Simulated scan of single mutants.
Amino acid sequence: MKNILITGASGQLAMEIKQELNNSITNNYIFTNKNELDVTNADKVSSFFSKNSIELVINCAAYTNVNGSEIDKETANLVNHLAVKNIAEACTEQGSACIHLSTDYVFAGEKNTPYTETDATSPLGAYGQTKLLGESALQHSDIDFLILRTSWLYSAFGNNFVKNILGISKERKELKVVFDQVSTPTYAKDLARFIIFIIENKLYRGRQDVYHFSNEGVCSWYDFAVEILKLAGSDCKVIPCRTEEFPTPASRPAYSVLDKAKIKTDFNFPIPYWRDSLVSLMTNYKL
């Protein structure tokens, strides 16, 4: 039985992983939040890996506030970049492997066809820049790793677009949502199931690679909001608007759809359509 570490335990992906595991008998899973393991402290990370003989770390710890990253670039860099470097060094010391979560925001969004893993990266803001530096920290190590880029993550847990839209709709008769930013919503439960599939089948060894994982299909934030409220039975009206109508500290890619051909070829793992996954969430949870 191997010791598997999942950082960022209070985040939506880690919580979905924990729920999906259902007391795995093949591995011992250790979930830590920032109070239990400060991944920004290299000594603490190294000590934790040594004490617990970590076989694999799933790094879900991240500073995901896109606008906040522009305001507090130091914290964004500390969590999204330097902490990953600490984890990579601890993995090197212990011979551990790493599955690291990254983002579609490493791309500028200037294409009009889905981004592949080999497309040039060019993040528009500090969030994407620091996440890309985190990727680089792993890629410059000698450990086994998988970098999983995903997009527009949501679930029944944590703070996300689905829960925000539902909350706002209860207070207003109409709301504006941008229609000129396009990607794919990703249900964290689907991503969690893929990660568990990788772990339980020991497919994380002998790899040093980047993969894209999101749900199937394409939509704008406007389309996503319309579908959320439709499924919720809300009479709140969604009005499409342009990004320029809502200026924010951080620029976001206009198009960041991820090509998943590589992950489907290498792992033969079924990826649900985004609307089907949203229906699954709305059917099974009272949000």
Score class of each variant (00 low, 15 high):
2 K>W: 08
2 K>R: 12
3 N>C: 11
7 T>L: 03
8 G>Q: 00
13 L>Q: 11
16 E>G: 01
16 E>F: 02
19 Q>E: 07
21 L>H: 06
21 L>N: 10
30 I>T: 05
32 T>W: 11
33 N>G: 03
35 N>M: 03
37 L>T: 08
37 L>F: 11
38 D>W: 01
39 V>Y: 06
45 V>A: 02
47 S>G: 07
49 F>D: 01
49 F>S: 01
50 S>N: 12
51 K>I: 05
54 I>Y: 00
54 I>A: 00
62 A>P: 06
63 Y>D: 12
65 N>A: 13
66 V>P: 05
67 N>M: 06
68 G>N: 14
69 S>N: 12
71 I>D: 13
73 K>R: 12
77 N>G: 13
80 N>T: 08
81 H>I: 12
85 K>M: 00
85 K>E: 01
91 C>R: 06
95 G>C: 09
98 C>W: 12
98 C>M: 15
104 D>V: 06
106 V>C: 02
107 F>K: 06
107 F>W: 01
110 E>F: 11
110 E>L: 15
115 Y>Q: 02
117 E>H: 12
118 T>H: 01
119 D>I: 10
119 D>E: 09
120 A>Q: 13
122 S>F: 04
126 A>C: 15
130 T>I: 05
135 E>Q: 08
136 S>I: 14
137 A>V: 09
139 Q>F: 00
143 I>G: 04
149 R>W: 14
150 T>R: 07
155 S>G: 11
156 A>H: 09
156 A>W: 02
158 G>D: 06
160 N>I: 00
161 F>R: 02
162 V>H: 09
163 K>H: 10
164 N>D: 15
167 G>C: 05
169 S>N: 14
169 S>C: 09
171 E>D: 14
174 E>L: 01
174 E>R: 04
175 L>T: 10
176 K>A: 14
178 V>S: 12
178 V>H: 06
179 F>A: 04
181 Q>Y: 01
181 Q>L: 02
184 T>S: 11
184 T>V: 08
185 P>D: 05
190 D>T: 10
191 L>G: 03
195 I>Q: 03
195 I>F: 02
200 E>K: 08
200 E>T: 00
200 E>Y: 03
202 K>I: 06
202 K>H: 12
203 L>P: 12
203 L>S: 04
205 R>H: 14
206 G>R: 07
206 G>M: 11
207 R>A: 08
211 Y>T: 10
212 H>T: 07
221 W>S: 06
223 D>T: 12
228 I>F: 04
228 I>R: 01
231 L>D: 11
234 S>N: 10
234 S>T: 02
240 P>G: 14
241 C>K: 15
241 C>M: 15
241 C>E: 15
242 R>L: 08
242 R>P: 04
244 E>Y: 13
245 E>K: 15
246 F>V: 15
253 P>M: 15
256 S>D: 04
256 S>M: 14
256 S>E: 11
257 V>T: 06
260 K>H: 00
261 A>Q: 07
266 D>L: 13
274 W>S: 05
276 D>A: 13
277 S>P: 05
278 L>H: 05
279 V>K: 15
280 S>I: 09
282 M>V: 04
282 M>W: 05
282 M>G: 00
283 T>G: 10
285 Y>M: 11
286 K>N: 07
287 L>W: 07
